[in-house]
């Protein structure tokens, strides 16, 4: 009888431990608290922002190149 009870309580302890682990997984920590909110919509925002920053990078580089052209033109016989 005692053995059976011990087995039962062991099963119960395991179940509680598993549920606790489950609960721990469902309470996101750190950065996941932000990113997993609102059905993970922030992940989409970050992805779109990364692409936007990439396009900005190209824009800045092209801008610098035009600057250089303007400078060369200003300094050449064609400027002033």
């Amino acid at each position: 009888m005692q053995a059976a009870l011990d087995t039962l309580s062991a099963v119960r302890d395991t179940a509680i431990a598993l549920l606790d682990a489950d609960a721990a997984q469902q309470a996101p920590q750190g950065i996941e608290r932000v990113m997993l909110a609102a059905d993970k919509l922030p992940v989409v925002l970050v992805v779109v922002l990364i692409i936007w920053f990439g396009l900005l990078f190209l824009l800045f580089r092209t801008d610098r190149r035009i600057n250089r052209i303007e400078k060369e033109l200003n300094e050449s016989a064609f400027g002033a």
Binding site: I69, E72, L73
Partner: peptide, 27 residues
């Protein structure tokens, strides 16, 4: 299409840059 726009834009700027740098060598 966005790629194509950025790419053609950069080709135009780069070609202009080379042409201008060669103009500037002239007296």
């Amino acid at each position: 299409m966005l790629f194509w726009w950025i790419y053609t834009l950069r080709v135009r700027v780069r070609a202009a840059e080379i042409r201008v740098s060669e103009l500037a060598d002239w007296p």
